[in-house]
């Protein structure tokens, strides 16, 4: 039972982080379908940092270094989306999809190259971080507290305050709703959209490293992040682009995702004798059902997905 709670919280943390990333991008008017790729690259940054960080630098510096690496990787990677979609007005769906594929391919190539360089017989795309992982976990009784739970909470508060209480948030949302209006009062729409995309990179990168640290202690980069980026987008839609609701939605989805990891701990569920595949499918099926009921009355930012062109008014 405790295990279920623990996994629910961890997965919810991932979803909150990534969904908030999507939320920032969309409020600025750009659909970031490439979050999946951003997560992979962010995770790669963090994993590489764990691998190369000097031994015995202490828990706190290690955590900070890993976070910084993930954030930097995620942000830089998301700028690929920014260049294409904001400056060159490319189709956001194509570019997002390309970034997802590119993320996994690039991470695999890089990790394999590193592995092969150190040991010519090692052609795997796996990075191990058994010891480093311990830095992120504090045992409270039998409950494994993961620092990312706190980070996600902080990120949530920051997102809420930024969007609703600051000048920046007001301007950002104006760009996603009515960029012409924003432009007419002298707000630089391109700049704000860049900000939205880069912030989504920050959050996506954090979500990525959080995801690969959620349960396992090594990660095979060929696998990507198993559609979590898209689950996060679903969470965002379910949360109606509002941080507080996103948090609620993330908990629900996190619960079902956690169930697939922990169902064998429940005698009742084991006795149902359902194969693991069904539990694996659960979050995606729930997601579809939820979307089917919530998409009709969407409060999506009105101008999302439409490239802004100064000339068109």
């Amino acid at each position: 039972m405790l295990l279920l709670v623990q996994y629910t919280l961890v997965f919810a943390s991932v979803l909150i982080l990534v969904a908030l990333g999507g939320c920032f991008a969309e409020h600025s008017g750009v659909i970031n379908l490439g979050l999946e790729g951003v997560m992979v690259i962010g995770a790669l940054g963090g994993a590489l940092m764990m691998r190369y960080a000097p031994d015995g630098i202490g828990t706190f510096p290690l955590i900070m270094l890993v976070l910084i690496a993930s954030v930097v990787f995620g942000t830089v990677y998301s700028s690929l989306l920014g260049v294409a979609c904001i400056n060159f007005k490319a189709n956001q769906t194509i570019v997002g999809t390309a970034l997802n594929m590119l993320g996994t391919a690039a991470a695999t190539v890089i990790v394999k190259a590193i592995n092969t360089a150190t040991n010519p017989n090692d052609v795997s795309s796996t990075i191990q971080y058994v010891d480093e992982k311990k830095a992120f976990i504090v045992n409270i009784g039998s409950f494994e507290f993961n620092w990312f739970m706190l980070i996600a909470l902080i990120a949530l508060v920051i997102a809420y305050v930024t969007l609703y209480k600051t000048k920046f948030g007001l301007r950002l949302m104006a760009c996603g709703e009515h960029p012409q209006a924003a432009d007419s009062v002298g707000i630089n729409v391109y700049k704000m959209r860049w900000a939205g995309v880069l912030i989504s990179g920050v959050y996506g990168g954090l979500g990525g490293i959080c995801y690969i640290l959620s349960g396992v202690s090594e990660w095979k980069f060929e696998n990507g992040v198993a559609g979590f980026g898209f689950l996060a987008l679903a969470v965002m839609i379910f949360g109606q682009w509002k941080p507080s609701r996103i948090a609620m939605a993330a908990l629900i989805f996190g619960f079902f995702r956690a169930l697939s990891n922990t169902y064998f701990g429940f005698d009742f569920l084991v006795s149902l004798d359902i194969t693991g595949s069904v539990y694996n499918m659960m979050p995606y099926i729930i997601c579809l059902i939820v979307l089917a009921f919530t998409s009709k009355k969407s409060r999506a930012p009105k101008a999302e997905g439409i490239p802004y062109d100064k000339g068109q008014r």
């Binding site: 209480k165 600051t166 000048k167 920046f168 007001l170 301007r171 949302m173 104006a174 709703e177 009515h178 012409q180 209006a181 924003a182 007419s184 009062v185 002298g186 707000i187 409060r299 009105k302």
Partner: peptide, 23 residues
């Protein structure tokens, strides 16, 4: 040039927002 889901006040101050440290 008005953002429909904002209040009148938000629309008026947009671009010249009175703020302290960005708040």
């Amino acid at each position: 040039k008005l953002v429909e889901c904002f209040t009148v006040l938000d629309n008026i101050i947009m671009g010249v927002e009175p703020n302290k440290f960005g708040f």
